[in-house]
Write a protein that binds this DNA or RNA. Structure first.
Lengths: 147, 147
DNA sequence: TATGAATGTTTCAGGCCCAGAATGATTCTT
DNA sequence: AAGAATCATTCTGGGCCTGAAACATTCATA
């Protein structure tokens, strides 16, 4: 089963997962900062964070230094969800690459890496979690790739 | 420049182009048949065909045997547009694959072919022109949110 | 042939997603 | 202390989408 469908079974959309991951990778940032990272207007982020907070995955905390701002953190449940999603990503990737031998998988991976770096693409837009050129992004793609 | 951007410069979206191509490949079919091929409700097709007809690329002709039906054909302008789009596609592909050597391009192509055939995928959903056997390809969950 | 069911297309109503403007609370500047 | 700036949120309006009518035409059948 594809990554997308399995996310749907968890009542998550790709943008939700991207945000979840982004918050997990750099917790405590303001909504504005996260919105900027993801290239979406802050007003649009609100509804996503509402969803994630309602689902108990993310927590808004008032910044004690600037009480206008809300800093974002994963809850324990959110951390567990991320681990689960990473597993799902690995499974989906394995299913996708099943027809290829190990050597072929490596080949494919390297060819796509090359194209991505040459074209300065970091990840599928729907799953973008980081500002372009953040190196951490290139490592953990298993958890973060479209089916 | 990417394929999508160039299409936008022609006031076309990927679905429009997919339909244009589908009509060109099998002209004279009814809207219902085309809608079925593309996995969209007939009511949704109407607006797309309206656009293409208004742009002078496609023609509705009443079926003489069943005057309820509209059969779809490319106009001359539509044929020329398809040729132009094919050229754009080749250019975009060349730009994308520029970082790779000829041998590497062949490798990549073969690897992706293999994956597509193994998974019974025919084309990118946005550009789908033919009916997929398995609806799992679609992955268009629509609206779902964490609850 | 007449009449009601079925069919191809179109229009309509409602929902979701989205961007940008307006609002409210808080902080910064001077 | 007053006004400008800033962060989050709410509001407004538009685009896209689906499924339910509506309309014209054809089919089935008595």
């Amino acid at each position: 089963m594809s990554f997308g469908r399995r996310l749907a079974a968890l009542d998550l959309t790709p943008p939700h997962v991207g945000l979840l991951r982004g918050i997990g990778l750099s917790p405590g940032r303001s909504q504005q900062a996260i919105a900027e990272d993801f290239g979406m207007p802050p007003s649009r982020l609100v509804a996503f964070i509402d969803d994630l907070e309602y689902a108990g995955l993310v927590e808004r905390r008032r910044d004690p230094r600037d009480r206008r701002a809300h800093n974002l953190f994963l809850t324990d449940k959110g951390e567990k969800m991320m681990a689960k999603i990473a597993g799902i990503g690995r499974e989906a990737e394995a299913a996708l690459l099943k027809p290829l031998s190990t050597a072929e998988r490596l080949q494919l991976h390297q060819l796509l890496e090359r194209l991505m770096s040459e074209h300065e693409i970091t990840a599928h837009p729907g799953y973008r979690t980081m500002k372009p050129q953040d190196p951490r992004d290139l490592d953990q793609e298993g958890a973060n790739r479209p089916s």
